[in-house]
Design a protein around this nucleic acid. Structure first.
Lengths: 172, 172
DNA sequence: TTATAAATTAGACAGTGTTCAATTAGACGC
DNA sequence: GCGTCTAATTGAACACTGTCTAATTTATAA
C-alpha cells in the first residue's frame, strides 16, 4: 500500500510478496475490504504515535504541534494516509468493531488538547468543536495531497489550516 | 456513476447501457481516466449551477446560502459528488486543460462572496481566505458523506461548517 | 503410527481497463 | 446507382482483478 498506493494495491500482489497464495490471504482476512481495513487501522496506529511524539516534544504551542503533526504524517506517508480516505466500504457494511478503538484514539487526543486550549467556562464545547476542527484541518490536508490546492495556487497550506483553527479557538 | 458510485463504475457497463461497444468508448475518450474526468467535470457544472441558483434566491445571508448549497448538492448527488474526490489521476498526469475552466468556476464564485463579506480594507485577502474556507467546508462535507462524522456522533454537520466559516470571517 | 484438525493451495469464475486489426457505415463525386 | 475513400464501430485477445471452493498438504494429538 505504501509503495504503490490505493489504486494499484491488490491482494494478489500482497500474496505474491509475502510468499503465500491468494487463498490463504482470504482465509485470514475474509475479504478484500477487511484486508484494507486492517492495513488502514495500522496506519491509524502509526499516525497516533506520530502525533503523540510531536506533542511530547512540543513547546507551549500544542495546537500548532497538532496541526503540523497531522500534516507531516500525511505528507511523509502519502499513500498510506490517502488509502484511509480512498477506501469505501460497501453500502450497509459498517466498520467491524475490532477496528474501532485504534481509529478513535486520534480524535480523543485532539479533544483533550482543544479542551485544554479553551477557557474553563467553554470546556464542555470541546468534543464537538474538536471534531469540527479535525474536519477543518482534514479538508486542508486533503486539498494539499490531492493537488486541489496546487491547482488553486495556494502556498503553505498548513499555515492556512492553523490560521483557521486559531480563528475558531479565539472565537470560543 | 450516479447509480452505482465510483467503486462499481465501469466503462464496459457504460458501453452496454448506451448501446455501443467498449472500443468506441475508448476511441472517443482515449482512456478510462479521461472518461471519468469528463463525467466529473459535468458534475462540477451541475454543482456550479446549483450554487448559483441558491445564491439567486438567497436573502441577506449569502454565506449561509453558499455553505448550504455546498452540502445540499453533495447530499442529493452523493455518488456523483464523491466520485470527484475518489478519482485519482495516475502520478504525473495533470488534469487536461480542456477540463480546467469548468472546474475553477466554483472557486471564483466563493471568492466573490467572501470578498463581499469582508470589510474593504481586508478585501485583498479574499482569494486566499476563500480557498481556505472551501477546504474547511469540504472537510466537513467529506466527513458527513463518508460516515466519519456519524462514527464520531456529530449531528448537524453543516451548522458546524457554517460556524467555522463565520469564525474566520469575523476574525478577518 | 494413526487420526484428527488446521493451514495452504491451485484453479475456476466473472469481472476489469486496454489495444488493435478487421469490419461496417456514411459521404462524395460521377 | 456505382465506386471510392474516410470515418466510425466492433469484438476478440491480453493481462489483470476479487472471490470462492474442493482438494491437498502440513501440523498436532492420541
Amino acid at each position: 500500500m505504501a509503495e504503490h498506493g490505493f489504486v494499484r494495491f491488490s491482494a494478489r500482489e500482497v500474496a505474491k510478496q509475502i510468499g503465500y497464495s491468494v487463498g490463504t490471504l482470504y482465509n485470514v482476512f475474509g475479504t478484500y475490504d477487511r484486508l484494507v481495513l486492517a492495513i488502514n487501522t495500522e496506519t491509524f496506529r502509526l499516525w497516533t504515535r506520530h502525533l503523540q511524539d510531536r506533542l511530547a516534544e512540543a513547546n507551549r504551542d500544542r495546537i500548532r504541534a497538532l496541526v503540523e503533526g497531522y500534516f507531516s504524517f500525511a505528507r511523509s506517508n502519502r499513500n498510506l494516509w490517502m488509502a484511509i480516505y480512498d477506501h469505501r466500504l460497501p453500502p450497509g457494511m459498517p466498520i467491524p468493531e475490532e477496528f474501532l478503538p485504534d481509529r478513535s484514539k486520534l480524535t480523543n487526543i485532539v479533544i483533550d488538547e482543544v479542551a485544554a486550549a479553551l477557557p474553563e467556562a467553554r470546556r464542555e464545547q470541546a468534543p464537538r468543536l474538536a471534531r469540527s476542527l479535525i474536519a477543518t484541518v482534514h479538508g486542508h490536508c486533503t486539498f494539499t495531497l490531492d493537488g486541489t490546492f496546487e491547482l488553486m495556487g495556494v502556498k503553505e497550506p498548513e499555515e492556512l489550516a492553523l490560521a483557521r483553527v486559531r480563528d475558531s479557538l479565539a472565537a470560543a
